[in-house]
Amino acid sequence: MNACALELAGERVLLLAQKALYWPAARTLMVADIHFGKAASFRALGVPVPRGTTSENLAALDALLGGYDIARIVFLGDFLHAKAAQAPATLQAMLAWRRRHAHLELLLVRGNHDVRAGDPSALLDITLVDEPFRCGPFALCHHPGLAGEAYVIAGHVHPVYQLRSGRESLRLPCFVVGARRAILPAFGAFTGGHALIPEDTDRLYLVAEELIFPIEIR
Protein backbone atom coordinates (compact mmCIF):
# COMPACT_ATOMS: atom_id res chain seq x y z
CA MET A 1 0.00 0.00 0.00
CA ASN A 2 1.14 3.58 -0.54
CA ALA A 3 -0.48 5.09 2.58
CA CYS A 4 -1.14 4.10 6.18
CA ALA A 5 -4.09 5.75 7.94
CA LEU A 6 -3.90 6.31 11.69
CA GLU A 7 -5.18 8.65 14.37
CA LEU A 8 -2.93 11.20 16.03
CA ALA A 9 -4.30 13.48 18.76
CA GLY A 10 -7.83 12.67 17.62
CA GLU A 11 -7.13 13.55 13.97
CA ARG A 12 -7.00 11.12 11.05
CA VAL A 13 -3.74 11.40 9.13
CA LEU A 14 -2.12 9.45 6.31
CA LEU A 15 1.53 8.40 6.36
CA LEU A 16 2.54 8.36 2.71
CA ALA A 17 5.07 6.15 0.94
CA GLN A 18 6.47 9.37 -0.55
CA LYS A 19 7.83 10.16 2.94
CA ALA A 20 5.24 12.81 3.79
CA LEU A 21 2.26 13.13 6.12
CA TYR A 22 -1.17 14.22 4.89
CA TRP A 23 -3.80 15.68 7.22
CA PRO A 24 -7.05 15.49 5.21
CA ALA A 25 -9.29 17.59 7.48
CA ALA A 26 -6.88 20.54 7.16
CA ARG A 27 -5.94 19.81 3.53
CA THR A 28 -2.34 19.98 4.75
CA LEU A 29 0.75 18.13 3.58
CA MET A 30 3.76 17.97 5.91
CA VAL A 31 7.29 17.21 4.76
CA ALA A 32 10.52 17.31 6.75
CA ASP A 33 14.13 17.91 5.79
CA ILE A 34 13.81 18.60 2.07
CA HIS A 35 17.27 20.25 2.10
CA PHE A 36 16.95 22.24 -1.10
CA GLY A 37 20.37 23.05 -2.54
CA LYS A 38 22.28 20.40 -0.63
CA ALA A 39 23.94 19.05 -3.76
CA ALA A 40 24.79 22.59 -4.88
CA SER A 41 26.33 23.23 -1.46
CA PHE A 42 28.56 20.18 -1.82
CA ARG A 43 29.58 21.16 -5.36
CA ALA A 44 30.49 24.63 -4.06
CA LEU A 45 32.94 22.85 -1.76
CA GLY A 46 34.43 20.94 -4.71
CA VAL A 47 32.65 17.64 -4.03
CA PRO A 48 31.46 16.07 -7.35
CA VAL A 49 27.88 15.09 -6.55
CA PRO A 50 24.98 14.60 -9.01
CA ARG A 51 22.88 17.49 -10.28
CA GLY A 52 19.11 17.57 -10.49
CA THR A 53 18.16 16.98 -6.86
CA THR A 54 16.18 20.25 -6.67
CA SER A 55 14.14 19.21 -9.73
CA GLU A 56 13.65 15.76 -8.18
CA ASN A 57 12.35 17.27 -4.95
CA LEU A 58 9.96 19.58 -6.81
CA ALA A 59 8.71 16.71 -8.97
CA ALA A 60 8.03 14.69 -5.82
CA LEU A 61 5.95 17.56 -4.45
CA ASP A 62 4.11 17.82 -7.77
CA ALA A 63 3.22 14.13 -7.62
CA LEU A 64 1.68 14.57 -4.17
CA LEU A 65 -0.21 17.69 -5.23
CA GLY A 66 -1.65 15.70 -8.11
CA GLY A 67 -2.79 12.88 -5.86
CA TYR A 68 -4.28 14.66 -2.83
CA ASP A 69 -6.48 17.67 -2.07
CA ILE A 70 -3.79 19.97 -0.67
CA ALA A 71 -4.22 23.64 0.19
CA ARG A 72 -1.12 24.03 2.36
CA ILE A 73 2.35 22.52 2.58
CA VAL A 74 4.18 22.72 5.90
CA PHE A 75 7.94 22.23 5.75
CA LEU A 76 9.12 20.91 9.12
CA GLY A 77 12.54 22.52 9.03
CA ASP A 78 15.70 22.35 6.92
CA PHE A 79 14.10 23.79 3.82
CA LEU A 80 17.50 25.05 2.65
CA HIS A 81 20.71 23.18 3.37
CA ALA A 82 23.26 26.02 3.58
CA LYS A 83 23.96 29.53 2.31
CA ALA A 84 25.23 28.04 -0.96
CA ALA A 85 21.70 26.70 -1.46
CA GLN A 86 20.69 30.27 -2.29
CA ALA A 87 22.41 29.79 -5.68
CA PRO A 88 20.57 31.50 -8.59
CA ALA A 89 19.88 28.25 -10.47
CA THR A 90 18.30 26.67 -7.40
CA LEU A 91 16.20 29.75 -6.72
CA GLN A 92 15.02 30.01 -10.33
CA ALA A 93 13.83 26.39 -10.32
CA MET A 94 11.96 26.97 -7.06
CA LEU A 95 10.41 30.22 -8.33
CA ALA A 96 9.17 28.51 -11.50
CA TRP A 97 7.54 25.82 -9.34
CA ARG A 98 6.03 28.46 -7.05
CA ARG A 99 4.47 30.30 -9.99
CA ARG A 100 2.76 27.07 -11.05
CA HIS A 101 1.32 26.69 -7.53
CA ALA A 102 0.61 30.30 -6.59
CA HIS A 103 -2.63 29.26 -4.85
CA LEU A 104 -0.80 27.11 -2.30
CA GLU A 105 -0.11 28.28 1.22
CA LEU A 106 3.48 27.47 2.16
CA LEU A 107 4.74 27.51 5.75
CA LEU A 108 8.23 26.81 7.03
CA VAL A 109 8.97 25.89 10.64
CA ARG A 110 12.61 26.94 10.81
CA GLY A 111 15.16 24.19 11.50
CA ASN A 112 18.84 24.24 12.38
CA HIS A 113 19.97 24.34 8.73
CA ASP A 114 17.57 27.20 8.02
CA VAL A 115 19.24 29.29 10.72
CA ARG A 116 22.60 28.83 8.99
CA ALA A 117 21.30 29.13 5.43
CA GLY A 118 19.13 32.17 6.04
CA ASP A 119 15.46 32.55 5.22
CA PRO A 120 14.34 31.62 1.72
CA SER A 121 13.68 34.38 -0.80
CA ALA A 122 10.59 36.48 -0.10
CA LEU A 123 9.64 35.86 -3.74
CA LEU A 124 8.69 32.31 -2.76
CA ASP A 125 5.93 33.70 -0.51
CA ILE A 126 6.55 31.33 2.39
CA THR A 127 5.27 32.09 5.89
CA LEU A 128 8.18 31.69 8.32
CA VAL A 129 7.66 30.59 11.93
CA ASP A 130 9.74 29.23 14.79
CA GLU A 131 9.09 25.99 16.60
CA PRO A 132 6.85 24.93 18.19
CA PHE A 133 4.08 26.14 15.90
CA ARG A 134 0.62 25.25 17.18
CA CYS A 135 -1.79 24.00 14.55
CA GLY A 136 -4.97 22.39 15.86
CA PRO A 137 -3.98 19.61 18.30
CA PHE A 138 -0.42 19.51 16.95
CA ALA A 139 2.85 21.25 17.73
CA LEU A 140 4.67 21.42 14.41
CA CYS A 141 8.41 21.37 15.02
CA HIS A 142 11.75 20.58 13.47
CA HIS A 143 13.26 18.99 16.56
CA PRO A 144 11.23 16.06 17.98
CA GLY A 145 12.37 16.45 21.57
CA LEU A 146 10.32 19.53 22.45
CA ALA A 147 7.96 18.86 25.34
CA GLY A 148 4.52 20.34 25.74
CA GLU A 149 0.84 19.57 25.88
CA ALA A 150 0.30 19.27 22.13
CA TYR A 151 1.23 16.25 20.04
CA VAL A 152 4.55 16.95 18.29
CA ILE A 153 5.09 16.29 14.59
CA ALA A 154 8.73 16.82 13.64
CA GLY A 155 11.69 15.80 11.51
CA HIS A 156 15.42 16.53 11.97
CA VAL A 157 16.51 12.95 12.74
CA HIS A 158 16.19 11.45 9.21
CA PRO A 159 15.12 8.12 10.78
CA VAL A 160 15.94 4.84 9.08
CA TYR A 161 15.52 1.24 10.24
CA GLN A 162 17.90 -1.61 9.42
CA LEU A 163 16.18 -4.79 8.33
CA ARG A 164 18.26 -7.93 8.79
CA SER A 165 17.92 -11.42 7.34
CA GLY A 166 20.91 -13.62 8.00
CA ARG A 167 23.92 -11.85 6.54
CA GLU A 168 21.76 -9.51 4.49
CA SER A 169 20.71 -6.08 5.72
CA LEU A 170 18.81 -3.15 4.27
CA ARG A 171 18.39 0.40 5.62
CA LEU A 172 14.98 1.90 4.90
CA PRO A 173 13.52 5.32 5.75
CA CYS A 174 10.78 5.15 8.35
CA PHE A 175 8.15 7.09 10.25
CA VAL A 176 8.48 6.84 14.02
CA VAL A 177 5.13 7.24 15.78
CA GLY A 178 5.05 7.46 19.56
CA ALA A 179 2.58 8.38 22.27
CA ARG A 180 3.56 12.09 22.32
CA ARG A 181 5.37 12.68 19.02
CA ALA A 182 5.78 11.50 15.44
CA ILE A 183 9.02 11.83 13.45
CA LEU A 184 8.91 12.00 9.66
CA PRO A 185 11.63 10.60 7.41
CA ALA A 186 13.70 13.03 5.37
CA PHE A 187 11.84 14.02 2.21
CA GLY A 188 14.85 15.34 0.29
CA ALA A 189 16.37 13.38 -2.58
CA PHE A 190 19.95 13.90 -1.35
CA THR A 191 19.79 13.17 2.37
CA GLY A 192 21.29 10.50 4.59
CA GLY A 193 19.65 8.61 7.42
CA HIS A 194 20.13 7.93 11.11
CA ALA A 195 19.36 4.53 12.63
CA LEU A 196 17.07 5.49 15.49
CA ILE A 197 16.64 3.34 18.59
CA PRO A 198 12.84 3.19 19.07
CA GLU A 199 11.27 3.95 22.42
CA ASP A 200 8.97 1.37 24.03
CA THR A 201 5.78 3.05 22.78
CA ASP A 202 7.04 3.69 19.24
CA ARG A 203 5.53 2.19 16.11
CA LEU A 204 7.62 2.11 12.95
CA TYR A 205 6.33 2.44 9.40
CA LEU A 206 8.95 1.58 6.80
CA VAL A 207 9.10 3.05 3.30
CA ALA A 208 10.35 0.98 0.36
CA GLU A 209 9.90 2.34 -3.15
CA GLU A 210 6.15 3.04 -3.49
CA LEU A 211 5.18 1.02 -0.41
CA ILE A 212 4.75 1.83 3.26
CA PHE A 213 4.19 -0.84 5.88
CA PRO A 214 4.28 -1.22 9.68
CA ILE A 215 6.92 -3.44 11.25
CA GLU A 216 6.89 -5.29 14.55
CA ILE A 217 9.94 -4.28 16.57
CA ARG A 218 9.26 -6.06 19.87
Rank of each mutant, 00 (worst) to 15 (best):
H103R: 09
G188E: 06
D78A: 03
L106G: 05
F175P: 11
S55V: 14
R134I: 10
D200F: 12
V47G: 09
G67R: 10
F75P: 07
I215W: 00
G46H: 09
L107E: 08
L106M: 15
K38H: 09
L21F: 05
I197V: 14
A122K: 13
C135L: 10
A26K: 05
H194Y: 06
L211P: 02
L61K: 07
A93H: 05
A82L: 00
E131H: 08
M30H: 03
L106H: 03
E131T: 03
A195K: 02
E199G: 09
H143N: 02
G37Y: 01
R134L: 15
L91Y: 08
T127A: 14
R134N: 13
R27L: 07
Q86F: 03
E199F: 11
L163P: 08
H156D: 15
T201C: 13
G136Y: 07
T201F: 04
A154R: 00
D114T: 13
L204I: 01
A195T: 05
L61N: 03
N112M: 09
P173N: 04
G136A: 04
G52Y: 03
A179V: 14
D33Y: 05
V74H: 01
L6C: 12
H143R: 10
D125P: 07
C4S: 08
F213Q: 02
A96V: 12
F79H: 15
H158F: 07
L64A: 11
F187D: 02
A139F: 08
G192T: 02
P132A: 12
L80I: 03
G166S: 04
L211N: 10
P185T: 02
A17V: 08
H113C: 01
E209D: 15
V207R: 10
R164T: 08
A96C: 15
Y151G: 13
P88H: 05
D200E: 15
S55D: 14
L6I: 08
L128A: 01
H142D: 07
A93R: 12
A44F: 14
D119V: 04
R110F: 07
A39Y: 02
A26F: 10
V47H: 14
V47N: 14
R43I: 09
L29K: 04
F138Y: 14
W23N: 06
L124M: 12
L206S: 00
L146N: 03
L16N: 05
I73Q: 05
V129N: 02
F42D: 11
G52A: 11
L184A: 06
I34P: 04
I70H: 10
R171H: 08
F79R: 11
C135W: 15
A93C: 11
P159T: 02
I197Q: 13
L14P: 01
F190A: 03
A71S: 13
E210I: 00
A40E: 13
